[in-house]
Design a protein around this nucleic acid. Structure first.
Lengths: 100, 100
DNA sequence: TTGATATACAACCATATGGTTGTATGATAT
DNA sequence: ATATCATACAACCATATGGTTGTATATCAA
């Protein structure tokens, strides 16, 4: 999922489909690269569960998946928790030393 | 930065150095791969500003950089803001329709 | 039915990535 | 002074990634 978000084009695609649906060709229209390249980016996002596709006639509508985004945020926050945890432990050790 | 966090080994290294310092060899000790491979991972994290190195005698101590982690979290939260924004606008449109 | 549109997918290419080994250098310990 | 330890870095290799073009298929419009 971090790998999926590592590419600027994919972050842009993702941003555009959060909270609304856009067809693959609508997305592709605004990039210099070929339609197939955009298709590949969408499929990378799809495998990472950051977007889902919903067929509507001959179009495939791409939707952003907010819950996966949330899970990513949680993961980063977990790193912060580790940091807070260690900082607290260090503070405790210093506190113990101080009270001797 | 997402690219740096995309690799499991690097996430593990990062996790281990948040809130404390570990030498490159200490880090390398616990992975199957060669010392040079771990060194490369650390340098990727360093270029992404997720860690910094501080020389101490012949050892190089790797420290996690929490502020960069925070910036990453902010970025993901910004995506959520976009989502909230669009959801609100849709609610407004529905509200307008309802009041006609 | 025919033509245009939207998508899917395969084959291919250049470059990036994640790994290796080997060599060099600075710091430490004896 | 010398051996050892921690690191740096180059050269190399296999595979992944991000792009291309070309072809096939399904849907919509005329």
């Amino acid at each position: 999922m971090f790998r999926a978000l590592a590419d600027p084009t994919r972050r842009d695609i993702f941003e555009r489909v959060i909270g609304r649906g856009l067809s693959v060709s609508t997305l592709a229209h605004d990039y210099e690269m070929s339609f197939a390249a955009v298709q590949k980016h969408v499929s990378v996002l799809e495998r990472a569960a950051l977007v889902t596709k919903e067929r509507h006639g001959r179009e495939q509508i791409v939707h952003g998946n907010v819950s996966t985004l949330r899970r990513a945020t949680e993961l980063l926050k977990a790193f912060e928790e580790i940091w807070i945890g260690r900082a607290t432990r260090i503070a405790e050790i210093l506190g113990e030393k101080g009270s001797e």
